[in-house]
Design a protein around this nucleic acid. Sequence first.
DNA 1: GTCCAGGTGGCCG
DNA 2: CGGCCACATGGA
Length: 289
Amino acid sequence: MHCITLDRETPFDLGKTLSCGQVFRWKEKGGAWSGVIEDQVVVTRQDGSKLYWRGATEEEIVRYFSLDTDLPAILGAIDRDPVIHHAINRSEGLRIIRQPHWECLASYIIATFTNIPSIKRRIGLLCGAFGEEISRGDEPWHSFPGAESIAKGRDRLPGICRLGYRAPYLLDTADRVAADPTWAERVASCPYDEARAMLMKYKGVGRKVADCVLLFGFGRLCAVPVDVWIERILRNYYLEKEGGPVSYEYLRHFAQDYFGEYAGYAQEYLFSIREELGSGKNFPRTGQC
DNA sequence: GTCCAGGTGGCCG
DNA sequence: CGGCCACATGGA
């Protein structure tokens, strides 16, 4: 069992980071979280400033959980009003994970127009059917299947994974990714707008999914996915007028201008308390939008 | 039965 | 460009 001690400049909340809806495979049992990082089963637990784990190197843990990111500086930069301030207080220590590129892209294609429990179930079925067996000890685990494995299992995919109309999207994207091993480095090397346009050429990847993949898979902390919850929160607290038609791009640009270069973090902190913020107006409207 | 969920693709003006 | 609408699935 490895252990590191987190200092004052490295706030981290393992549970909030893994349960806020950015990743879909981790499971908590008795305070211990089990999951998969790059084909390795990892079990980890936090006790105050101590972070314990097994199944990965310290370097891999630091990278995956973004422990090398200056979170206090980011939170200081986005802390601009009572609403986001409250979200920061509620979820301090939440970090945006660095997900593997393909896992992130495939997961967010599966994550469209559904709810988080269903997403977890479908991704679990996908991994069980097409991932490689990497069990360690008691719990059976599978790696996240590569694009080739999914493409090869195209006939079984619809029946097994309950993806509905998303199955052909995932298969089409899996084909193209499998045939293009450098797709991720090209996305990574482009500026935000270009990278986003590249991602949106894949089937099942629109504006929102592209922003999720850039934020959670490519570390583009300026990316702001606007889902129904974020739209609701922006309408409740940030728009001049609550009603009326507002486009995705308008809301995204507002959030990026208003919160700045780490707007993606603001998005995730607001998302993490979506039920509390989305169901009413618990704060005065800032009316900046 | 109805409504909702980390939306997208296709079509139409 | 923007406005519609169908699209599978499962839980409340």
